[in-house]
Write a protein that binds this DNA or RNA. Sequence first.
DNA 1: GTAGAATATTGGCATTGTCAATATAAATAT
DNA 2: ATATTTATATTGACAATGCCAATATTCTAC
Lengths: 205, 205
Amino acid sequence: MSILATKQKTRATYHHGDLRRELIEAAVEMLPESGMSGLSLRKLAVQAGVSHNAPYMHFSNKDALLAAIAQYGFQELRARLTEKLQEAWRDRFISGCQTYVAFGASQPELFQVMFMEHDAAKFPEMVEDSLAALQTLTDIIAVGQSEGFVRDGDAHEFATLVWSLLHGIAVLNANRQQAPLPYRQEEASEQVATFLDEILKGLGV
Amino acid sequence: MSILATKQKTRATYHHGDLRRELIEAAVEMLPESGMSGLSLRKLAVQAGVSHNAPYMHFSNKDALLAAIAQYGFQELRARLTEKLQEAWRDRFISGCQTYVAFGASQPELFQVMFMEHDAAKFPEMVEDSLAALQTLTDIIAVGQSEGFVRDGDAHEFATLVWSLLHGIAVLNANRQQAPLPYRQEEASEQVATFLDEILKGLGV
DNA sequence: GTAGAATATTGGCATTGTCAATATAAATAT
DNA sequence: ATATTTATATTGACAATGCCAATATTCTAC
């Protein structure tokens, strides 16, 4: 009965009910403090009120948990990217891009797990969800083409170009974030808009 | 005397001589197999032929070792980016960018360590070397401006734009690398060239 | 209701990061 | 040259962790 003990659930039933989901959510919560390699299956277990080995029913090892976290992240990202569908195209495009960068800035450790090296063969569902997230960008680009904002060409290639840029911005900003000066969210959004202007000069009609 | 024992040095002197350097080099070598979190200070120690706690003379903890590895990576990257200075500007620019992406593809784990979250306050030399690497790109852009290949503007901002794009390409390619189909180096270089064409349409005069 | 599958527990082990105390060598001062 | 201080390396120890094996409990089909 340590005073410092983190909240840990108790339960009446032998079976937990939804341990897998709870472990993932708890992991995402713990991630900012612990970092990727500081994540502990055992800690997650006791926090969920189960024994230290219960997680192994749901994840064959730590890599599998990390893949599940990454998958969760891609689903989350996709959900945010598919919001704000009623705006005009260019605004929608820009704010979608800003959302991407903001997502990385708000949860850098999750972002890191999402883009660490996973075993694609072992975790195909995760790969699928990552591609689904990219697809939203491709879709926006394709719409931009049909509405005359983007010139003709391989929409997927254009999307990859933009995605690459966004990802780079996100990572570089994440590193700057713990520089002495506090990093401002608005600056990042402004930077994204500026950079996209440059890119759109190339991609525009 | 295990048959599987990795090569481990023996030495006559009590003092190793250059343990810090050797640990970093051994770590970079071990990185591809072990990954960032699989790196073991103890294994590195025995491989260098010292006791399991000798590394703590040179690195206060594992984070410090990772920062040193990152710093090594940035120095290495900068060295490669400053080669091929006799080519024409546009070729030099493109091949510099391709070098960046190729570097990430050839040593993805090192790349990951370089761009993981480090404590910038604790490891200022590493930050310095990372900025020095970025500076090479800024320099190339500035030369491009003076030679009329790039329009006027903040060279550092342009460099950040290009750097962001390159970094994104590198990361996304690293993930694709362990997809079923073997990833080709030439494809990546071609992709870089294509994307840079689009960017240069925006940045060009 | 019973068999078997799914889930959770207990116990254990090797590896690892890190601390404390000690030993040895090198550098420096006297 | 010798003594003192500093740098470096060793030994021993401990708690935390990933993961394996064996066992117990509950749920699901039939």
